[in-house]
Amino acid sequence: MKRVKKWAAAITVFITGFIFLIPFYIMFYLSLSSPGDSIAEEWFPRALMVQNFREAWEKASMGRAMVNSLVITVGAVLLLVFCAACGGYGAARVKNKINRMIFYIMVLSMMVPGIINTVPLYIMMRRINGINTYWGMIMLLACQSLPFSVFLYESFIRTMNSSLEEAAIMDGCTRFEAFWRIVFPLLKPITATVVIMQGVGIWNNYAQSVFFLQNQNYHTIPLAISTFFRPMELIIICLPPGRQLVLRLLQWFF
């Protein structure tokens, strides 16, 4: 009986792993296959077409897109961490009415999906010349991830002991210095969570960038791939699917 159970568990684990990995294998296969290959006939590409990668990279100007994505993601994450950590600290430690109100409005706003604001935001961005710019996109994406991050920081700081900062303030630090020099380094675990979680979201963002980065020169990776993929039927007929898939593989690696 025990043995049967053990085997059943092992098989379940194996099948689950298989279900989650097989699409990645298909991606790997298609990205390296030549036009005539079919996964139905051979389980491994006959010739490894590494040049697919180079071609796709050039066709979709991935170099440019990579730089754009990097600039926007790094910028937005830095801004986000600074604002959210300060905000979370303010909400947790400086308990006046205004801070509480701002905090509750932010928590409530987590229920509002980003797309709702898009049209008025677009109009505002056009007025302040923020469309097709790095800074516009950075501020926008940082703001979008702000409420959740502030919430995380706030709940973490609230559980921390405040005696360290109080001692620092006693010794003549300002509140901000006490926060920046003493509390912020202690927040590393939360900062890591925010950077990873929100960073991935910002890197992958499509719903906002499709509105605010229409200029090809500012296309991020998701946008570059989607414009490459859009005339879908045509490309699928004209090119082996491998070349499009390479792009996806690229994004997965970086």
Partner: peptide, 10 residues
């Protein structure tokens, strides 16, 4: 302390 977050959010 809330100022940067509040301004961005506003």
């Amino acid at each position: 302390m809330m100022a940067p977050a509040a301004v961005l959010f506003l």
